[in-house]
Design a binder for these strands. Structure first.
Length: 219
DNA sequence: ATCCCGAGGG
DNA sequence: CCCTCTGGAT
């Protein structure tokens, strides 16, 4: 996945064309995690590290039926939590993180989820990417969530020549208007999941191949 | 064999 | 910067 050749930067105008075309292709792009509250969303996003949201959605019905709130999860038996979330992978660390996070929410925020990046990233298991997903999806705050898909597609599409997610985020912020950051994040993620795979991307089915620096190197 | 809406620690 | 944590899908 890492170590792809750097693509030529595209102009702002071309970048706008590409993202507009992708938005038309995926008009219904949205967060596919299943949740009922900001707490459940936050917990789901922490568990989504290095797995698919399909995997996460398999364990959350049981997890949230038993532990629907920060208070319930904070008081849960950690071994029971580990067993429930096992199919998502990294279950030892994730169980520790989601419970420690729930306990921090109880201790500092009366069991509610804070709505700033600064507060969110202080929570156990919450990094910039997770914080931005929660901000965008639960609170409507515009932001880029530079996950593995956004990272890969930003390189291929010539949106950024960097590999560090924080630098990519800055490049994307300069390239696109603020109000659309969240929508564009999800659109890139959908495109990455459906067509622009890490391995063997389906370039010949791609709606933006004529504008794509990566495609130009493929032929 | 490689990847999946990463984060923490060294 | 690097490494580790983990299971499931393709």
């Amino acid at each position: 996945m890492k170590g792809e050749a750097k693509m030529k930067p595209v102009t702002k105008a071309v970048a706008a064309k590409i993202i507009d075309q992708l938005c038309k292709e995926y008009p219904d792009a949205e967060c596919e995690l299943v949740y009922k509250t900001p707490f459940q969303l936050l917990t789901s996003v922490i568990m989504s590290a290095q797995t698919t949201d399909v995997q996460v959605n398999k364990v959350t019905p049981k997890l949230f039926a038993k532990y629907p709130t920060a208070k319930a999860l904070a008081e849960a038996d950690i071994e029971d939590v580990k067993q429930i979330i096992k199919p998502t992978g990294y279950y030892n660390a994730k169980a520790q993180n989601i419970q420690a996070c729930a306990q921090a929410l109880m201790a500092n925020y009366d069991g509610e989820v804070p709505s700033t990046q600064e507060e969110l990233v202080k929570l156990p298991g919450v990094g910039v990417k997770t914080a931005n997903v929660v901000l965008g999806v639960a609170f409507g705050v515009p932001g880029w969530s530079v996950d593995t898909h956004v990272q890969r597609l930003s390189g291929r599409l010539g949106f950024s020549q960097n590999t560090d997610p924080l630098k990519i985020e800055r490049d994307l912020q300069k390239l696109f208007p603020n109000k659309d950051w969240s929508k564009y994040s999800i659109t890139l993620i959908w495109h990455g999941r459906r067509l622009c795979y890490a391995n063997k991307p389906r370039c010949h089915d791609c709606p933006v191949m004529e504008l794509c620096p990566f495609y130009k190197t493929m032929r």
